Simulated scan of single mutants.
Amino acid sequence: MTDQTSDRDRAAVAALAAAEGAAVAADSFRTDLTVEEKDGKTDVVTQVDRDAQETVIETIRTEFPDDPIVGEEEDALKEVPATGPAWIVDPIDGTNNYVNESRAFGTAVAAVVDGEPVGAATDCPALSDTYRVGPDGAYRNDESLSVSDRTDPEAATVCPTFWWDFDQRDQYAAATRAVVERFGDMRRYGCAQLELAMVAAGALEGTMTNLRANPWDTVAGVQLVREAGGVVTDLEGDRWRHDSTGLVASNGGIHDELLAAAREIDD
């Protein structure tokens, strides 16, 4: 455990680093980009992703030069250390949106100690929304966040999140069917950190997947949901961790129904 002062320091640096990385992304948004494929036609990267990650890392290193950093791009670590402090970085979550000139993208930075988040931020510059969370609570643009109070699934809006690849389209179809049969409406934004932030803000009642998600796509948003009064579990209904299989995040009021929907994906 860290003391409160240290937690506040890490939360503040997470917010600053996210803002610096988001500024790099914003500077090149809707410009002529060279787009490279990583593991598929929809898994893309640009030099801006790399530049934004470098900026985030430089900002963190100024205050915490010895902490390990887990990140999506290049040679950053890919696994969260089990003990001690670390940072988790997604320089542009929603790169596919970014290159297609959609505003649904953001820079996410989380500070963790012994694998547990102590502060995080997701900065969405094209939406003019900054989400941050720390010892003082969860906020969007300095206004306190709270999950929605809806408990009726038929009045709830849910987002199936993450990308089911072309050899998993049966699961993608099952996830969609489970949502539309159980809930009032469905959204999909293509930016997991934003989707989790929207659950925290009450704009969605829940988001879910059966997949094991990367920590840079999740940890900041999960902490936002929890601090805003929501619930985040794995497919077993146990408390979600960065190494869990499946992710079910909700306002709490529809969690059992959302968990049942997520479990249907693999049936």
Rank of each mutant, 00 (worst) to 15 (best):
L211Q: 15
G134R: 14
Q193C: 09
V13N: 01
F64Q: 06
D67Q: 07
T95D: 06
V118C: 10
E264A: 13
Q223N: 06
P153S: 12
V179D: 01
R169S: 08
D39W: 03
F162W: 11
D185W: 01
Y98K: 06
R150V: 14
N100D: 12
V56C: 10
V89T: 08
T207L: 01
A197F: 14
A249P: 02
E101Q: 13
G252N: 07
V109D: 06
A260Q: 09
A108I: 11
A82D: 14
V13D: 03
E205F: 00
A26H: 09
F29M: 06
V13M: 05
A260K: 07
L258T: 14
F162K: 03
T31L: 05
E58I: 01
E63V: 09
E79S: 12
A138M: 08
A213D: 03
A120R: 10
L259W: 11
R61T: 12
A261W: 09
N96C: 00
H242V: 05
P125D: 04
Q4E: 12
A111F: 05
T218W: 00
V112E: 07
E74R: 13
C159T: 13
A201C: 02
N251K: 04
A200H: 06
D7E: 15
L145I: 08
A174V: 09
F64A: 03
A156I: 06
D49I: 07
E58Q: 12
R188W: 02
A14V: 06
P160D: 01
I69T: 02
V231T: 15
R103Q: 10
F29R: 11
D27C: 04
E205G: 05
D51M: 04
A25E: 09
E79W: 01
T42S: 09
D234G: 08
G134W: 15
T218F: 02
A175M: 07
G206H: 13
A120C: 13
E154Q: 09
S250C: 03
A76E: 06
A26E: 14
E143I: 02
N141M: 10
P91I: 01
A201L: 04
D167C: 01
A52R: 05
L259N: 06
R177F: 01
G206P: 07
E54P: 00
R188C: 04
G84W: 14
R239C: 00
P91F: 11
N97P: 04
E63F: 12
F166N: 15
A18Q: 02
A203Q: 15
R140F: 08
A138N: 10
R10W: 07
V112L: 02
L224H: 13
C159D: 13
K78P: 03
Q4C: 03
F162I: 00
S28P: 00
P117F: 13
E72V: 03
S146C: 03
V45Q: 13
M208G: 00
G94C: 11
Y172C: 08
D185S: 15
T151V: 14
A249G: 01
E73P: 05
V232L: 05
R50V: 13
S148Y: 13
D243R: 10
Y139T: 11
N210W: 00
Q53E: 15
G94R: 08
T122A: 10
I60Y: 10
Q168C: 04
T209N: 14
A86S: 15
G40Q: 12
D267E: 14
R177K: 14
R212D: 02
R182G: 07
F105K: 12
A192I: 15
D170S: 11
L145S: 02
L247S: 00
D142I: 11
E101I: 03
T95S: 11
C191H: 09
